[in-house]
Design a protein around this nucleic acid. Sequence first.
RNA 1: GCCUCGGUGGCUCAGCCCGGUAGAGCGGCAGCCUUGUAAGCUGUUGGUCGCGGGAUCAAAUCCCGCCCGAGGCUCCA
Length: 624
Amino acid sequence: MRILQLHSNFIEYEAVEKEIELAEEPEKLQDRLEEVVVLFTAIEDGDDTNVAMKAMEATKKSLDQLKVNRVLVYPYAHLSSNLAKPSDALKILKGMREIAKSMGLETYSTPFGWCKKFSISIKGHPLAEHLRIVTSEAAKEEEEGVCEAIKAEEKLKSFWYILKPDGELIPANEFRFKDCKSLEKLCRYEIKKSRAVQQVPPHVPLMKRLEIADYEAGSDPGNLRWYPKGRMIKSLIEQYVTGKVIDYGGMEVETPIMYDIEHPAIAHYLQRFPARQYLLCSDKRDFFLRFSACFGQFLMVHDAQVSYRQLPLRIYEMTKYAFRREKSGELTGLRRLRCFTMPDCHALVADLDQAKKEFLVRFKLSMGILENGLELSKESDYELAIRVTKDFYEENKEFVLSLVKLFGKPVLLEMWEERFFYFVLKWEFNFVDNLNKASALSTDQIDIENSRHYDMTYVDENGEKQFPLVLHCSPSGAIERDVYALLEKAHRDSLKGKVPILPLWLAPTQVRIVPVSEKYLDDCEKLMKQIEGCSIRVDIDDRPLSLGKKVRAAEKEWVNYVLVIGEKELDSDVLPVRDRKAGKKSRNMKVQELVDEIQAETAGKPFMSLTLPKLLSRRPQFAF
RNA sequence: GCCUCGGUGGCUCAGCCCGGUAGAGCGGCAGCCUUGUAAGCUGUUGGUCGCGGGAUCAAAUCCCGCCCGAGGCUCCA
């Protein structure tokens, strides 16, 4: 028996004509019901009243969850290709209605054996749509205490462990998280799905106040606007990540952001995740906006000549943009967007051996980007989660452990009984934020399916075509999410009594010059030119405000270094430097010493000139 | 979609319970002050109180419907 259960706002139906001899004489030829759960039901060969009983028991349970007491039993043959004989079906359907009534449900039914037309409005919540399949075997087995349906779910069910660098594998619920508080938070988030407080995430007011990004009412939710400072931060991170991937050997490419829905290689992706795309109609063709750079890169590789000598073949794109039409309630600040920027680096490898070697290289690359680039620390900011099929784990224990050893502390390991995605192994670095939510940043996967789907091949030593394995890596995760992590980390620091600050190479203003009065403006501009010439972002607060107010403004903007310039400074070659990182204490430094310090700290990082007017009086205010 | 909270000058919010001429701070603008390390002073501009309807002599305030936003549920290739 198959029951497609739909929680609907209303359904209207009309019985049009009898289709078979056996058709029921209906009480009503048409009707409209509101706030009802519709049970489209197909009775299959072998079903009996016992099956109907089991099906209704499960249905009742689910109705209780939905807090609905009104059902419409709607015979619907199209759910199965293994239908029962009509006479049996009718008998069982009648039984079902009686069972429903005896359970206290307000039960309606549409006539069996009729061609009917109907309109239905379905509620959008996650439990609104559900397909229930009950077979006679399952019903029998359940009597003995085992349910086939539950067994089937078990296959999809995953098992959670903690894997320690010493190789010990402990079920997650038995692990003692004494020194791993944020790993504990990750586990709680992933396994128990528990959520803490109702609160706007701290990075949201920060992203506005610091004039980084903001919501854009004129667009679709989850498509944000980026102010000059935010755009600069994003751009710098993009440049940095791209540079690192190119150093690793990635060939940077650019591919279209939209694809034809009918394209055969792409179709199976969409069938699998049909509801998450932006769709775009243009003339007579339908397109979807890409949700990753896989399509473009795979289509490119499909058309390329690749020899085994060229493997691993690394191909890379800073995906601008990836679009995922997440449900509106799922969107959050910079953490979860509908439009985002994501570095996406694929590697084609000949075999599992090569995959493993490459995987480790990319693991280190990703870790380096988080640690050195974003200045996140695995000690306090992010945790490793590994997801693997049971078979792969059993056969490659040592390899999985080598990742954990590289990470150097216990990790969360999710094990699947069976593979139900395209990959057999995946890891993610998860940032754990102030509301104890975890978000994946860097990730890499071993994909064993897509080279076939996209017909990507290489030619081996014997001149024969082979399908490679494909690794999917985002070494930093979405750039917007990186900014989220930086802001959440800064907020966490401020809760601990530390000053919130951005990494120096990302700070829009690295040095702020504050003249004591307008008299010193010319001298300030000279100083600015001198510092600016050393590839440092510097500006001047030339507004006619009190000194205290200008210093306060600089602190509120998280400016790293503040130089107050007045009579004293002009007479001396040593400047009192207000250093935010050093707790705002004044440090006496020569200009060259300050320049050297900044250059040392930002060495190896990309640099951009300030894109805002250097004089603060010339700047518009975008927020607050 | 459901639940919760919210929508009042550019921004943050008070006022709403208990109906009676729309308020504050910040910002902007004009001026004074010429400043010594997290808010100097004065003046001033700026609002069909999300939209529609209802009851009332009278609605930001009460009632009904709707729209929009955030968070939660769920989801996260």
